[in-house]
């Protein structure tokens, strides 16, 4: 069971693709301005959170 989740703040996201470049698991995709996360692939490693220039990502406990 996943106890963590990657949360996107779409009001902050500038759809820049920085987060895509660091994801080892190919768990994210930028579709034009919409960031998609494949929750089956995302292991909540948090690397994309660190690279995001806009502070639009966070890992939250669920």
């Amino acid at each position: 069971m996943q106890s963590k989740r990657l949360i996107i703040n779409r009001f902050k996201c500038a759809y820049c693709g920085a987060c895509i470049s660091v994801c080892k698991n190919n768990a994210n995709e930028l579709v034009e301005t919409f960031l998609r996360i494949d929750e089956n692939k995302c292991n909540c490693c948090g690397l994309c959170v660190k690279v995001c220039p806009m502070n639009a990502l966070s890992i939250e406990e669920v």
């Binding site: 693709g17 660091v22 690279v51």
Partner: peptide, 25 residues
């Protein structure tokens, strides 16, 4: 570009580490 997946599909690992990228605004 920086989002590249083509390399990874073809067997070249292009994933960037946190000390291999500049985060810009």
């Amino acid at each position: 570009g920086v989002e590249s997946r083509v390399g990874k599909w073809m067997g070249l690992d292009t994933t960037l580490k946190l000390n291999e990228v500049e985060s810009c605004v």
